[in-house]
Amino acid sequence: MRIGVITFPGSLDDRDAQRAVRLAGAEAVALWHGEHDLHGVDAIVLPGGFSYGDYLRCGAIAARSPIMSEVIDAANSGMPVLGICNGFQILLEAHLLPGGLVRNDHGDFICRDQRLRVEQTDSAFTNGFAAGQEITIPLKNGEGGFIADAATIERLEGDGRVVVRYLDVNPNGSLNDIAGITNDRGNVVGLMPHPEHAVEAGFGPDTPDAMRSGTDGLTFFTSAIAAFAEAAP
């Protein structure tokens, strides 16, 4: 399986996302924001960072990049697309997911290992988790407060489209502790926390077993690979 990782001007975690893809067992393909070419990939990751320096609004200018017209078409035809942090903001600005992300309610940037509960295991990136599984992956954002109007929140909750929820503390004022959502079809997923930083023992969050041994993020990537293998003829 070939998974593309798009680099926008100001992307920071594109290399980490590529590494996560490789550690999960797929081929990582570097994609460039300025091209109208997905290079035949089977899934796409929009990585974290500060595309265009967060000018205008986080993700707003990147969402109007040349490559995004291909990403929108691919997403609408069912290709798995994962947006992480700034990538999540880009997916919202591209209207591939509903709602918005606003500045953290407390006003500070936050960087911590965050406990989450996986609420939805039918999406392209969470099918490898057990329903209700509790995981820990890093979270780092300044504008991670998920908001939407009451009808949208009700629809997301009612349709089981909340993918992961914050546990213990709500780190940024997100409504209903929402940390990630998916679309109707389950192929487009947006996450505020960063699974790509918890994919290799020695470089992940601390666990009760050992320092930095957490690899809970890897399952987001292996899920996409498993779904692809299952769909293959």
Partner: peptide, 8 residues
């Protein structure tokens, strides 16, 4: 459509 995000 662009200068503002009317969701927020």
């Amino acid at each position: 459509t662009m200068l503002a995000n009317t969701i927020i």
